[in-house]
Design a protein around this nucleic acid. Sequence first.
DNA 1: TATTGTTATACTCTATAACTATA
DNA 2: TATAGTTATAGAGTATAACAATA
Lengths: 186, 186
Amino acid sequence: MKKPVRKEKPGSDKREHHYLNRMRHHSGKYEEFHWPSVELLINLAYTYEVIHSHLARRLDEHNLSLGAFNVLMVLSRFEGDGCPMHELGELLLVSRANVTGLIDYLARRKFVERTEDERDRRVRLVRLTKAGKKFLESILPAHYSRVREMFKGMSNRDKAALSELLMKLRHSTQSSLKRVSMNGGK
Amino acid sequence: MKKPVRKEKPGSDKREHHYLNRMRHHSGKYEEFHWPSVELLINLAYTYEVIHSHLARRLDEHNLSLGAFNVLMVLSRFEGDGCPMHELGELLLVSRANVTGLIDYLARRKFVERTEDERDRRVRLVRLTKAGKKFLESILPAHYSRVREMFKGMSNRDKAALSELLMKLRHSTQSSLKRVSMNGGK
DNA sequence: TATTGTTATACTCTATAACTATA
DNA sequence: TATAGTTATAGAGTATAACAATA
């Protein structure tokens, strides 16, 4: 398996200017255009991309995809009996089919193992192996200090406010989507 | 080209409970763990996923990927001369190689066309065709009203505060990343 | 030598359909 | 019939390297 070295991307703020310029133009042109909403969408996407690509790059150094990392994180709370595969899918918003692939990969690296559920022989329980637990514990300190470092420029107060607002946005969006889908929107 | 129908995913809030539970556990276990930062990361990722997957699904109904849509949006501000391909890449944080693919697709649908730059014969300028402009104008009203509808549950005040905080977070992260990369972090 | 765009390639992520084995 | 997991497949997104044409 070849592992090419990835180049980090600089944050060009040409982008910010372009977006603002485009918004100004469209806001006069489309009646449905709602500045605060569009601005929010752009900021959410752009900010997420910057953070996501940085973290993915760091995990890549351990040959871990973000999906695989998330699986390990979820399993770290299921020691003992293990977690049914379909439940992993629900927690990660990933389809059953794709969970199979992630677990296959992690099982090849001996980080997880599948066992059978005695009570329902259709389900397979997944749990961390000793090696998997050890591996996760070896990378988490660096991960957590990276997260802390990355967000250092903001006060805890701002972080809490931002978390709060993001949660509010998510709930609002989800209930709006539910409403639409009940009215026949696909 | 087969187009299977996609199922919308319900927002299960099992997820939220699991995350909080895991954070509580790790916060006692890892010294580097910083609750406000980790909470923020999780909220950012989860909220983005919900919104992104909804919008991607809607664009899919026009056989448009999010990337292709973004290209059209960028080009809508470059009428006249057109935009060099490498600049498209910078504005979308996408590599030159991948821009080629997006433009190929949009050119096949006759939404964009490539012309040559007289002043520098290495570069190719891309611009919307009449058909492309018409297409974009036909889908934007629904797009913008969807965005507005999606965020309806929040006040404009909250939206503005959220935008502001996201921008702050992005700038803080970017300068932190720049600092790390200057100190030899790859 | 450096840059623009292209081609080739590869891995991740997401999504669906069809299959099996259980319930 | 319905659910859990698997297999196969496909398209989107991202990334790198090597190349031709031009600067």
